[in-house]
Write a protein that binds this DNA or RNA. Structure first.
Length: 177
DNA sequence: AAAAGGTCCAACCGCGGCGAG
DNA sequence: ACTCGCCGCGGTTGGACCTTT
């Protein structure tokens, strides 16, 4: 049995209050992100580090774009999911201001149903989880690689080809499906 | 008007990878 | 080479809100 990520005694759970949000925002504005395990204590929050990280990334970050997804975003999610499967963080990385959680929720509540209504199995291009890291680590947030997509969907068939190339010093990544 | 069912989204959970020691 | 702790990820859940009957 794995140890819990933090001491669950004396930590709050559930919805965040405005005061908690403000404490976290103030702390990160002053000191920046990083060391999530230490942040709750330093910011005076009775939360576990993971909870703080999630709250910041999914809700409090100033560059977040709230509201409905546009048609272009929806289209891009379709294409990227076809290429990458359930790699929500990678998909979200191509959508400025969107989080992996937001993309995942939108997929599960809207896009999945659209695919099913068109007779397309939304899971058939799923990529095994164990293949994840080789791709994630070639993808540095500040140096997003160019992504080229060619996608044939005229009859709903799974004809897709894509490539991701990173022309920075880290190893070049190419992904063909 | 109210109960039942459905939808959506914020938040939690547990796992796997990675780096430090 | 191995262990341990942290971080980030995808899957899942709980409950608030909305729609239908």
């Amino acid at each position: 049995m794995r140890k819990p990520c933090c001491d669950k005694n004396g930590t709050n759970k559930g919805a965040w209050s405005k005061q908690e949000d403000q404490k976290l925002i103030d702390y990160i504005r002053k000191h920046g992100e990083g060391n999530w395990r230490f942040i709750p204590k330093a910011a005076g929050l009775l939360r576990c580090g993971k909870s703080c990280r999630l709250r910041w990334i999914n809700y409090l970050r100033p560059d977040l774009k709230r509201g409905n997804f546009g048609e272009d975003e929806e289209d891009l999610i379709f294409k990227l999911h076809h290429l990458l499967g359930n790699r929500w963080s990678l998909i979200a990385g191509r959508l400025p201001g969107r989080t992996d959680n937001e993309v995942k929720n939108y997929w599960n509540s809207h896009l999945k149903k659209k695919l099913i209504s068109k007779g397309i199995d939304p899971n058939k291009h799923r990529v095994a989880r164990r293949q994840r890291t080789s791709i994630v680590h070639a993808h540095q947030p500040s140096t997003l690689p160019d992504l080229n997509l060619t996608l044939g969907t005229s009859n709903g068939a799974a004809a897709a080809q894509g490539s991701i190339e990173a022309d920075h010093p880290s190893p070049t990544l190419r992904l063909f499906i």
